[in-house]
């Protein structure tokens, strides 16, 4: 499966350079895999970034020396806490910029490519301002997708972004905006997630849970 519709275009990344831009791009890609609950292998990363597997292996070695990630045979690339923070932040930035670009009428087919470039140069001050101007709640700080919740954490539902029939079904079951929800447990091996809300317990497949955005309350 391709990584959503934000498929990577050839960005002309210099092959092994350790520029901030390049590091960020890699960590972002790997974070996307994590978000989907999929293994990040060298081949898959290479395919996403449109570079050769050899370059990816080379880069992974370098990133692992820097403490961003670990490579484990059979499990693929695993981000360290440090790598995770960078990857998550940059992906958030990417999405915010994307929405911003779309909102000002930037051609839809070029939005992704442009966001890929901008995400490395936009300051956090700029990011905050853009964020406060855009409406989609899912990219606001403290709003996570349901899969990012740990067992036992609670939150308030902000938005559901699945296809409309699934959304309707989830809403009918009571998952509407501003509903308090708790993650009871998630099945092992990236399985589905059990949530509790309005006195009822529901199991939701992981793919669907990824598209449910919830504001974490401590």
């Amino acid at each position: 499966m391709q990584i959503s519709n934000e498929k990577y275009l050839n960005l002309g990344i210099p092959k092994f350079s350790m520029t901030t831009e390049n590091v960020e791009e890699y960590l972002e890609t790997i974070y996307r895999f994590k978000e989907k609950g999929k293994r990040a292998t060298t081949t898959k990363i290479a395919k996403e970034l449109k570079v050769s597997s050899a370059s990816v292996s080379e880069m992974i070695k370098k990133l692992s020396v820097k403490g961003y990630l670990k490579y484990e045979p059979y499990r693929g690339v695993i981000l360290t806490k440090k790598g995770m923070t960078v990857g998550k932040d940059i992906l958030r930035k990417h999405r915010i910029i994307q929405i911003f670009l779309s909102s000002i009428g930037f051609p839809e087919n070029k939005v992704h490519k442009e966001a890929c470039k901008l995400e490395h140069v936009v300051s956090s001050e700029m990011e905050n301002i853009i964020e406060s101007k855009i409406e989609q709640p899912k990219h606001k700080k403290g709003v996570l997708s349901l899969v990012e919740f740990k067992d036992g954490q609670e939150g308030i539902i902000k938005s559901i972004e699945t296809c409309s029939s699934t959304k309707k079904r989830l809403e009918d079951l009571g998952l509407i905006p501003e509903t308090k929800i708790r993650v009871n447990k998630s099945a092992p091996l990236h399985g589905p997630i059990e949530v509790c809300f309005r006195d009822s317990r529901l199991v939701i497949g992981r793919g669907m849970a990824m598209k449910i955005f919830v504001k974490l309350i401590k």
Partner: peptide
């Protein structure tokens, strides 16, 4: 048709 994921009540 759209593949549906798992939505299931835990009674």
């Amino acid at each position: 048709g759209e593949p549906t994921g798992l939505i299931m009540e835990m009674n």
